[in-house]
Design a protein around this nucleic acid. Sequence first.
DNA 1: TTGTGTGAAACCGTTCACAGCA
DNA 2: TGCTGTGAACGGTTTCACACAA
Lengths: 251, 251
Amino acid sequence: MATGRTHRPATRSRGIPEATVARLPLYLRALTALSERSVPTVSSEELAAAAGVNSAKLRKDFSYLGSYGTRGVGYDVEYLVYQISRELGLTQDWPVVIVGIGNLGAALANYGGFASRGFRVAALIDADPAMAGKPVAGIPVQHTDELEKIIDDNGVSIGVIATPAGAAQQVCERLVAAGVTSILNFAPTVLSVPDGVDVRKVDLSIELQILAFHEQRKAGEEAANEAAAVPLAPKESGKGPDGDVPAVMPA
Amino acid sequence: MATGRTHRPATRSRGIPEATVARLPLYLRALTALSERSVPTVSSEELAAAAGVNSAKLRKDFSYLGSYGTRGVGYDVEYLVYQISRELGLTQDWPVVIVGIGNLGAALANYGGFASRGFRVAALIDADPAMAGKPVAGIPVQHTDELEKIIDDNGVSIGVIATPAGAAQQVCERLVAAGVTSILNFAPTVLSVPDGVDVRKVDLSIELQILAFHEQRKAGEEAANEAAAVPLAPKESGKGPDGDVPAVMPA
DNA sequence: TTGTGTGAAACCGTTCACAGCA
DNA sequence: TGCTGTGAACGGTTTCACACAA
């Protein structure tokens, strides 16, 4: 940094906790909104509220990046936007390919927030020959045969898999073999990848199931049909919500 | 349970750790696949591999549900499928509404895995009057005006928000006011909800940014242009990836 | 002998509370 | 005085390692 004498990097760069990394985009979004409203500075309290976290967590998170911020005042919005962007690697261009241009793939290609923040859809790839050449979100779909060439020509290191579950592992292997080292997986499958390749998954079905779990608990508590404090009660009698155990039983 | 004498519930039901709950759908998926292949039993090792976790974690997770499983043998697949389904609340029907039928909303409506596992798309809702009546995934889109009535008539407690960011908070408030207590949010905004309402968010842009962070780190390590072990080196000179700090600087 | 179930230890993330700087 | 930056306490999660049941 040219003029950054007052800001010593301290714990610089090595070992930002994963939980913190996952929140940086949240802070960045809140800061960008403030920046657009030309707000010059924010306190940890205000920014935390905008990002939906508590202020202690936010301050701790920022402390891993260095001592940006002025005691008694707060944080300089523009400066923080830059620092977080740089930390996340958003000051560079990330070409991305989307494989599997069904409903979801098309939605992703059209998603605006995708193209903002440094990500650029370099290509859309689908296995269906009938799709080839058809433009989606202004980008012509290319056939899977071209996958390796596309990755190579565009220097793609991030791939998005939006194929059916059955095709995902195979697509993943081709992406990795072609040089992709980060994968965002929308297919409902566990992907096996070699060391050094990052996979993040987004799974609608799993999210819904987690919600259902909590929803069921709420319903159960609400109608407190089981006596409130029964730590070790027998309650052996058949009391399933909708029948009993299925045909097959364990030994 | 009728014949479940051998399986004492132990820690039953109260307080399954959140991290465990989040993995149950993963186990369920792996078990369902085994079930379809008529595999009668699995060891923790095998199932863990299929679910992409390690076996110690899996056993610990299952221990919160009770002592299903036979020492020296493994777990009965069908029985576990049932127990996890019940724990997650998937033995009952969950009507779901999707609000915002753009590219993403349509993709969600068409997503098959959605409709499986107990979730049923009760209605599609959009603010655009031109969409009203148009069928998406075989379900006619209804106008936002009908939102409260739809929630009420169908006893909906889970809502999916796939609107633009600007509309999300307002839609959220209407859903909550109408009785929805679990929300899956695809809009890139922080939603404010009253206590007792669960929100889970899915954010493509955030996932990509997290990948970019790690990707950048890999690139930095690979080309180890900064001398390997320099814990407290000055390195003050301008060395930004693409220029230096922006115009606005902190005090 | 095999593989589950689980205390105990190690690890990570969050919250507290306050010293210290502008 | 106000708000950041951070050590220390806390709580949750993962891993270890082994007793114990089939």
